[in-house]
Design a protein around this nucleic acid. Sequence first.
DNA 1: ACCCAGGGTCATA
DNA 2: TATGACCATGGG
Length: 214
Amino acid sequence: MSPKRVFNKLFRTYGKQNWWPGETPFEIMIGAILTQNTSWSNVEKAIDNLNAHNCLDAEKLVRADQDQLAALLKPSGYFNVKTKRIINYCHWYLDQGGYSCLSTRDTEQLRNDLLSVNGIGPETADDIMLYAFERPIFVVDAYTRRLFSRLGLIDGMEHYEHIRQLFEDKLGADVALYNEFHALIVRHAKMVCKKNPKCQECCLVDKCDYKQAH
DNA sequence: ACCCAGGGTCATA
DNA sequence: TATGACCATGGG
């Protein structure tokens, strides 16, 4: 089954997802860091805290007290690590001239620059590339590996860049498609029943395995 | 009482 | 290059 066909199946099943769940590009960047190995519901609480304290702003975050910021980020987990990563990211972000300046940068260059920031790995960088800068970068996460290895399109243990390249080659550069695809993969992953071992065979392979079905 | 979540870094071999 | 420890909350 081609990646495009998988997309069509997902889209017919779940419809448009309207990602990223954040209003401004900057909020998307912060959300991308906060959601590292963390459920989105926990991230929302941290973002609400930042908004409640008028702190969702790069200039304010770089001047924030570490302990106070950590307290706001607490619900998102790894709060000490994420505090450092966010302050560090904001320093870089402002140093580079902010969104308007970064927007003019070449896609390859921008991605490499993001990856050079401590705390920004490939997936976080690509979330930012795709959803904040609207660049045609296919995001690879654990769900992507799991789904497509179950479907037999990949082994699952390949390096990040290898998988990204594979999908970008097969799908062609398409921001809207990548946007929806990643969101749909995450949406579908949440529907997989983890208790039933047979579910391993059903995500789009067979019938289906939605939680409602069990 | 477990298990996992929209990862990444650092130290070690 | 590649494995392991570590980071930590909240929901199932």
